[in-house]
Design a protein around this nucleic acid. Structure first.
Lengths: 166, 166
DNA sequence: TAGAACAGTTGCATAAAGAAACGCAAGTCG
DNA sequence: CGACTTGCGTTTCTTTATGCAACTGTTCTA
């Protein structure tokens, strides 16, 4: 059976998971961030099947995260560059890296260490509020229904105000 | 053929993608954060096949993100609670939500609106530095090899200092 | 006493993943 | 000149995974 399509669900996470919910997509984006931009380079780095890589590159180009650009003409050869939409995925990858470092890696096993060039320190990514700039902890998050919620009623947009805990 | 196992790759993103690289896992975590914690509730909310849900819940419990806890004994009924390891995934989901909102959702289509209870404003998640607290932009990220990098040489840990751009 | 709720399990048809072989054009070695 | 190598994918074949629907079994409810 065909895999369930969540690309039109009224949920940002469901829509994002169309891309991030595939491990190869995530790893291909990682390679693109590491500037490994060519078919053979990615194939070798990831050990992915060539047919699978072809397929994923195609969908990442179709979805607008990568751009297939020629870097020579004789013979025609292409590389895959991150678009702005693709570059904007770095918070997701960084959040995954932080979680993976905390929960799926032994101590002193870090393969790569990230540094915040602005302050010069090694860092882990954390989530901050776009409005006040402070760290957002799980307990600080509340959410309420918006115009895209099925059956949204503008008269009482926040009747059901939920929080993640209690 | 069996799906490639990246759980022992020397890469935090590869390890994290074992969980997040499956769309159903991500959506099940979403439901858990929304406190929809029971089998039938999740099945109905997601429209997922019951066998698939069984399988994913099992792996999320085995991987320590969820805990299967009884909430009644006659008959025995269980619910799935987020563990600390599971709760720590909220930055990943929030980063996905931010990306999805920016790139996979029309304007005024927000199904849910997130609020930072500490400052009272609607917000998007952004990535900040765990050391200085400032926003981390893509251009600000540098990375160098750590002890877990294959062939790591402690004599010259930062010989190859890379940045994501140029 | 016949449902209904809950939490799965089982069986089957179809789609996707992986490995390996194949294509094919342009260079390049001898 | 002809064989060989690169770069970039396609095709083919076999093994898994997915989705749907029907079935189990227990307890509370109408």
């Amino acid at each position: 059976m065909k895999r369930t399509d969540t690309s039109d669900w009224p949920c940002t996470i469901a829509r994002a998971s169309v891309i991030f919910g595939d491990a190869w997509n995530v790893l291909i984006l990682r390679e693109a961030f590491y500037r490994n931009r060519r078919f053979d380079g990615m194939q070798e780095a990831l050990g992915i099947g060539r047919n699978i890589l072809t397929d994923r590159l195609k969908t990442l180009v179709e979805e607008g995260l990568l751009e297939r650009a020629p870097y020579q003409n004789h013979p025609a050869r292409y590389e895959y560059l991150l678009t702005q939409k693709g570059r904007d995925t770095y918070p997701v990858l960084l959040a995954m890296a932080t979680w993976g470092r905390a929960h799926a890696l032994g101590p002193d096993e870090d393969p790569l260490i990230f540094e915040h060039a602005a302050c010069g320190h090694e860092f882990d990514g954390m989530i901050a509020c776009s409005q006040c700039g402070e760290q957002v902890r799980l307990e600080d998050i509340r959410f309420h229904r918006g115009p895209g919620y099925p059956g949204y009623n503008p008269e009482s947009p926040s009747t059901e105000r939920l929080s993640v805990f209690g």
